[in-house]
Structure formats: C-alpha cells, structure tokens
Design a protein around this nucleic acid. Structure first.
Length: 277
DNA sequence: CACCAGGTCTCTC
DNA sequence: GAGAGACATGGT
C-alpha cells in the first residue's frame, strides 16, 4: 500500500486496494459514521476522520501509527487478490468488493460486538453497540470510547438489557467478567483450532462468532466465518446445502487455508449486496 | 400477525 | 455428534 505520514496525517495514494466504502460496509466493523466528505471511524478509545481529496484518501487522528495498523496498510492486497482470483466465484466477488481490507480491531471490542451480532441484524447491532458505548464508555468529548472490560464486568445485567441486547445480556456480562478476570487473549502460540476452541468457552461465542473474533481481532486468516450468507454461497459453489454450518466452515477453511478470511470477506460482501434473498 | 436478522444454548437421542 | 426449540428486540 502506497502511503505516507505527515503530522499524524496518513495520506493514501490511489484507491485500488483501499476503498473505504467497501472496507467499512463489508460487515467487519460496526462503529463508523458517514460524513459529507468521508467517514468517522471509532476504535477502542480512539477515532479517525477519513476524507477523499481528489484521488487520495486522507486519514486524520491523534495516533497515525494505530490507524496504519488498524487499516492493515502494510500488507499487499494485490498479492492476495492474485492468489484468490483463480477460485470459482471469487473473480466476481473481488471485482465487486475491490479495495476491501481486513481491519486490525481491538480484540475485546470484537468479542463483545460479535456476541451482540448473533441472530441480529446490522442496523440494530450498530445501535446497540452505540448505546453500550454511551452508557459505559469513557466520555471523550464529542464521542464515547468503547467500554473497557472492567467497566463491562462491573455493569449489572440490567444495563445490558437496557441497551437492547435482549437474551444476550447474560452472555455479555459473563464474558466481560472472564475477560476482566484475566482470560488470556494471547493466542500467538496456539494453532487456529485451539484458539477457536478457547474462544468458544466464552458464553455467547459459538463457531461462527469465534471465527469473526479470530479474523477481525487477531487477523487469523485461516478462519472462514460461516453465516447464513456464506451458507447460501456454499450451495451456489458446491451445489450442496444439507451440511451443517460447522461442516461447511471446516471445508471452506481447509480449501482456502490462510487465505480463508480474505476469501470470506469478498464472498460475504458480494452475496449480501447482490444475492437476492 | 408471522417471519427474519452475520447464531448460540440447552436438552434430547 | 446431530437435530429440534427457545431465545429479546425491532423492522417489514
């Protein structure tokens, strides 16, 4: 990725591997707002504003280094796309979602957010997370930070219910307490399957949510999050539909190896935006 | 009033 | 292990 930094301002040249709209709308992140000239994007206790200037994208924040990593700018997505384009169905999906990147988000924020995402729809997920930040996150002036695990752990279950999490309130409270109590998120020495199993010991974290956490919070690209949309794509690609989601996930992860997460984002985004029903 | 939403949990066999 | 139901909430 061709970028430069000047006074905490990240300047990105050319958008063929960096398309903010696709990066943000492809389902990996919930805390962002469209503005007149671009976006405001919130992560942990920070935010950045992103604007288009001619054929450049300019990202302003108080911590450029954080957002260079957040936007995964030091990775060559041209190479990734070259490897993926040979698979059936990927060519169209890449064409449609060109410029997607896998963000490097805060692990705890991803865990809480994707527990909320289960059996829920995207607008409502965004709303609930926003209310959770307002209720428990540090007041940063004109926005609220994502709540730390300690604040989440101290909050009563009623608080989670009051922001609209419904029956997930207990899962969130329980998981927050485990995280605050030192549940290790250092998966660096663990194989994908082991890390996945550990995450699934958290309440509200099944196979699909664990894969989202590994992919979006730890950049473990062996993960192939398999939701209803990917299941539909699976049927289109393989003509097979009576396998369990867990089985399909395993097949896809094996097929794409450490390109799974990238393939999944292109396929998911394309399916959700273009597949009818 | 049903049905659905980036599924998971629990209880069965 | 695999298969049914339940599950809060809000929109269509």
């Amino acid at each position: 990725m061709n970028y430069s930094i000047l006074n905490n301002q990240i300047i990105i040249e050319g958008q063929k591997d960096f398309e903010p709209r696709h990066i943000l709308d492809c389902g990996q992140v919930f805390r962002y707002l469209k503005t007149d000239s671009g976006y405001k994007i919130f992560s942990k206790n920070l935010f950045c504003s992103l604007i288009y200037v001619n054929d450049r994208v300019i990202i302003n924040s108080i911590n450029a280094e954080y957002f260079v990593n957040y936007f995964d700018l030091n990775r060559d997505y041209g190479e990734i796309k070259k490897k993926l384009v040979v698979y059936p169905g990927l060519s169209d999906a890449i064409k449609f979602g060109n410029g997607i990147r896998i963000l490097n988000q805060d692990p705890a924020e991803v865990i809480i957010s994707f527990i909320i995402s289960a059996n829920n729809n995207i607008p409502r997920i965004k709303l609930i997370i926003e209310r959770l930040c307002t209720a428990l996150g540090e007041d940063m002036g004109d926005y609220h930070a994502f709540p730390g695990v300690d604040a989440l752990a101290r909050a009563p279950i009623e608080l989670f219910k009051s922001v609209g999490t419904g029956y997930r309130a207990g899962y969130l409270s329980d998981t927050a307490k485990k995280l605050a109590d030192g549940f290790s998120l250092d998966f660096s020495g663990l194989e994908y399957g082991e890390a996945r199993k550990k995450l699934m010991s958290l309440k509200g974290v099944g196979g699909k949510v664990a894969d989202c956490i590994l992919l979006f919070g730890f950049h473990r690209t062996e993960a192939f999050p398999t939701d209803v949309w990917i299941e539909r794509v699976f049927t289109e690609l393989f003509g097979e539909s009576d396998l369990s989601g867990e089985k399909k996930s395993k097949i896809l992860s094996a097929k794409f190896g450490d390109l799974s997460g990238y393939a999944q984002q292109y396929l998911y985004y394309n399916a959700r935006e273009n597949l009818i029903k």
